[in-house]
């Protein structure tokens, strides 16, 4: 059993209104010097595959087909 950590983020140039709202809220709380905030998702997926490279390749295929929408999101897959 391998645990994969799939991280999905909006691509650069894709509007991230949640990130923008959090950015403003942090500034409102008095945190000085807050730059850009981006909001993404992290998913932990267990797969039966034990070979690290094959498990990762499987995770990438899952990300391309379902976990991420590559029109608007980019993803990374790594061991969890």
């Amino acid at each position: 059993m391998t645990k994969l950590k799939v991280t999905v983020f909006p691509k650069a140039g894709v509007l991230d209104p949640q990130g923008k709202a959090i950015e403003r809220a942090l500034s409102g709380l008095g945190f000085a010097g807050v730059g850009e905030v981006r909001v993404g998702k992290v998913m932990i997926v267990e797969v039966a595959e034990t070979d690290p490279a094959r498990a990762r390749a499987q995770g990438e295929e899952m990300a391309r087909k379902l976990l991420a929408n590559t029109v608007i999101e980019s993803f990374t897959v790594e061991p969890a």
């Binding site: 894709v14 509007l15 209104p17 949640q18 709202a21 929408n69 029109v71």
Partner: peptide
């Protein structure tokens, strides 16, 4: 339809949230 690839593009969260 966009998620199924039958139409291009995607629908994002409304800009106003």
């Amino acid at each position: 339809l966009t998620e199924a690839g039958l139409l291009p593009g995607a629908l994002l969260r409304n800009a106003s949230l």
